[in-house]
Structures are given as C-alpha cells and as structure tokens.
Design a protein around this nucleic acid. Structure first.
Lengths: 187, 187
DNA sequence: CACCTGAGTTCCATTCTGCAACCCAGCTGT
DNA sequence: ACAGCTGGGTTGCAGAATGGAACTCAGGTG
C-alpha cells in the first residue's frame, strides 16, 4: 500500500496478470499479483532445468554435439565418472534428447554411439547463450576458447533477443512477463 | 586410419583447427584435430556452468530478476533450503552477479534485498533460451506458463540464433566450431 | 518485557558425485 | 584354445552437496 495515484482496477486490461522480468524499477503492473504468487514449478525454465540442470548434462550435450560420441571418449574428455555418465546418458535417452545407435566399422564388432535427437539439437541455443556470456565475462587473457560459425557461410554466430515487432533487445533485455494459462496460483 | 581419400595436410587453411558442432554428418574438417583434443575446461560453457550450473542458482536468478528479492520470499517461493540459498546468494554476490543492498521502508528497520547486477542481467538470454525450449518440449496441456514480452512495445520476445552475415539459423542451428586462441591441447 | 519478523546459522540425515575396481562380450594374436 | 585388449558399462564405498528443522540475533511492537 502507501501507493500514491492508484488506479487499481485489479488489472490493466482483461486480466493479463502481468509481472516484471529483468525490470529496472522493481514495480509490477499495479494490481497484478506478483510473480511469487504463482507456482515456481509452473515454469519452462524449471522444467528444463529438471532435465538438464545438473552438473554434467550440458557438458555431455556440448561434447556429443561436437562429435564426441562414444562413452570412453566422453569419460576421458570430460573427466566425468563413468557411473555418472552412464546415468546421465540413460536419462537423456529416456527424455528423448539423445539417441543411442549401434554401428559397425567393418571387421570390428558392433559399437554404440550417442547422437543428439532433434529435441536435443534444439538445446544448442542454450549452449550458445552460455558460451556468449562466458566469453564476455569469464574469458582468459588468451582470447576466446572457441568461435561458433555458421556452417553454411562461415560467419560468426550469435544469440539475439528480439521481439516480434522486430526490435532488438540487446544484452540486458528489459522484459515484462505475462502469466499464461499454464501457471497456477500457490496455496 | 583406414581413411580413403585422405588429403591430410593437417589443416584446411591457415590452421583454423575447426571442428564440428551441431553437425549432420559427424565428420570433422579433414586434418583438423577433433574437438576432444582440446581441454574441456577451456570453454565458456564450462566456465559459465561452474558459476550457475547447480540445481538452484538459475532458479534463484530467475526469481530475483522477477522481483522476488528477499531471502524469505525466495525460500518460500522456490522451496529451497535456507542454508543452501544462503550459500548460493553468497556465491552469486562474490561472482558479481547479484548485489545485496540495504533499504529502509520508513518506520521499519533496515532490510536487505538482492538484485541482479549488469552481469547478472546479461544471463537473461540464457533463461529465455531455456524457457523457449521448455515451452516447446515440456509444456503441459494448459498452455504456456509465462509469456515474455518486450517491456517497451509489448510484443512477444524470442531468442534467435543468427550469423553476422545476417542469416537466421533456426531452432537447430548447424554450426562449425573454430578453435580459438583460448583453447589448449590436452595431454 | 514478552513477542514477532526477517535473515540467517548450526547440526544432522539423505542424496548425489568421484574413484577405483570389477565384469562382460567380441575380436586378435600365438 | 586361450590369454589379452578394448569399448562399454556395473558395483561398492568415501566424500561432497542438499534438505529439514531447530536455534540465533537484531530491531521493532503491544
């Protein structure tokens, strides 16, 4: 309360229940319930993290997407414990992010390799966003470790936040979150 | 070996040491050392994950960026244990992603709140990329939990992968990784 | 002066990770 | 035929991270 100038009709227009996100003033749309009034689990970020948010999974996906496809290669490149890798891969296969396929090199016995599924491949933008942030904030004095390029034209690749009206929102996008139908109130 | 047709001059042109990333054929540029020949830690993804890659940190950042700024509010909204939150916040402050500031509401005693620093705000694209992936692959039948909009124009926001030549790379970008000066060979 | 609240700490029980050893199935060389 | 190697794991145990609940502490209130 103590709000001067309150127009307070419980909503701005047809109850969008908007909240702030990356705001500057820290003020929600007046009258709208705050973000914290909705379940923390009703969130695509939370659900995605439940799948890939442990210490190794994203590194496994990074390596698999970079052509490191075999169990022992992953163990030796990542330094992950074998049992942990085994469990992670099983979970990724279960979730449909990775496919385990058999192949035979001719004269050798059958082997397995791991590849990203389509859904797994769609995680690449997340990896790119992390790479970009790390490049800006955690690069050593040697320069960038890795430069991602467009496979077709060779130009450097980056992640942009844009809106459907065509604006480019920059590195620290100022957003307003609209609570959608998939959110539920707490308590 | 057993490679037919090897042109094998240890590099394509001036030693770009390129590797594949999100490829389709699984073949590295001929002659270039594979991705796995370089240290896994020389990677902005790995460094970023070392900072924010645990079970709670990204959710804390999500909540803080959404205006949930106080310790007890975070505990109750996230369901995180108090000691864990305490340690996470300390680490985030230490890393410069979050600032802890005192404020006083008038007549009450001094309180603290957590806000994202500029560097912390720059993590928002990572959160958006995760949200977008989760929206596509893990949405319930109720619809999207949350819709991010441009604070200025209200249009829906999305994350795009583009290259500097102006191409749009789509949801499953096909990349080629160039090993940069910040990478070091293993062994 | 007793009580409340926000913001943490401290102390354990449980769970997850790391390490090393072991296992097993196909080849391969002798 | 059989010992050895290699890829691809599983098992068992020690140590680290997490969850839960109780305790602390300071400032403000009735």
């Amino acid at each position: 309360m103590t709000s001067t100038n309150q127009q307070d009709r419980t909503s701005t227009a047809n109850d969008t229940r908007a909240s702030v996100f990356g705001d500057r003033a820290g003020r929600a749309v007046p009258g709208a319930p705050p973000y914290s009034a909705f379940e923390s689990e009703d969130c695509s970020i939370a659900r995605t993290l439940a799948l890939i948010g442990d210490r190794w999974t994203l590194l496994v996906l990074r390596d698999v997407s970079n052509g490191v496809r075999r169990f022992d290669d992953l163990v030796s490149h990542l330094g992950v414990a074998r049992n942990v890798l085994s469990r992670r891969l099983a979970a990724l296969i279960e979730a449909g992010l990775v496919a385990r396929t058999a192949y035979r090199v001719e004269g050798t016995r059958e082997r397995h390799e791991y590849r990203l599924s389509h859904a797994g491949r769609e995680l690449v933008p997340i990896l790119l966003a992390m790479m970009s942030w790390g490049d800006r904030h955690l690069a050593g004095q040697d320069g960038l470790p890795v430069i991602p390029r467009h496979a077709d034209c060779g130009a450097q690749v980056r992640v942009l936040v844009t809106c459907e009206a065509g604006h480019e929102l920059g590195d620290r996008p100022r957003l307003r979150l609209e609570i959608g139908p998939g959110s539920h109130r707490r308590e």
